[in-house]
Design a binder for these strands. Structure first.
Lengths: 131, 131
DNA sequence: CTACTGTACTGTTTGTTGTAGTACAGCGTA
DNA sequence: TACGCTGTACTACAACAAACAGTACAGTAG
């Protein structure tokens, strides 16, 4: 099982926090293909948020092709399908890399340090996958 | 001189686009220490937005320690000062790396590809700095 | 049948974003 | 000094997003 934790004080919307954490759980392998997600109402009760907020997050993940819904049963992690073209996927990742580099640069990090940090985080993710 | 371009149709707020582009300009060296920024009203007229929106963006950059204001003269790029501790700066960068990796992973990229993309973007930035 | 699941509405509230207008104070130059 | 530029600080308003609240309906499984 896996658990989610949100912070209402954050400037990041609740539904985005849910999306990010499920995405992360799938990326690390905490959630595998076929696994069921917490029910909309169940997770809403656990996080003390409205069920519409959870539904909104799940809908976003469905659009990304990461999970699918089954009426009356719940949400499940899907087999990875390529819903975006290679070019589109590359574009999406690049659009995240660019601001990261600007921020890191203006914070005083040089190329080597940035690359080291990224490499470090990648390894941290890989280790999680093996646990 | 450097120019800014914004897209009103984007889901990214105008003031954030301005912040990101000035930050990027400083990161690439397009803007150097001491350089003056476009005036609040001048840039507002050029971008056809309200001058308050530009002021809001500049205020954000002042808080980040990237630029400073001089009453009656304008905004200028500051000498890099460490307004955050090393730990805090590292934390900020990491908080950007994490979602990037999750997104890239769920889009189907493996570790090597991600690292290659990041390296590629870093080199692209470096080339800009030398032009 | 019943209790769970997802789904789909209609409202309402709150905070952010952006516009619009106004006003005031500091700087530099004619 | 006077003028035109600069930043700064308000108020008021419209539009939108986020989240909550409540309700209702349809599919699934025991």
């Amino acid at each position: 099982m896996f658990s989610l934790h949100i912070s209402t004080g954050s400037d990041v919307p609740i539904f985005r926090q849910i999306v990010a954490q499920v995405r992360s759980a799938i990326a690390t392998g905490t959630l595998s293909v076929g696994d069921g997600l917490p029910s909309v109402r169940g997770l809403a009760a656990e996080l003390v948020v409205n069920h519409n907020t959870v539904a909104k997050a799940y809908t976003q993940l469905v659009q990304d092709g990461l999970i699918e819904s089954q009426q009356g049963r719940g949400y499940f992690v899907t087999q990875r399908r390529e819903i975006y073209t290679k070019a589109e996927r590359t574009r999406r990742v690049k659009s995240l890399i660019e601001p990261l580099l600007s921020e890191a640069k203006t914070l005083g990090f040089d190329d080597e340090e940035i690359l080291a940090l990224v490499t470090n985080e990648i390894e941290k993710l890989s280790r999680k996958r093996k646990e």
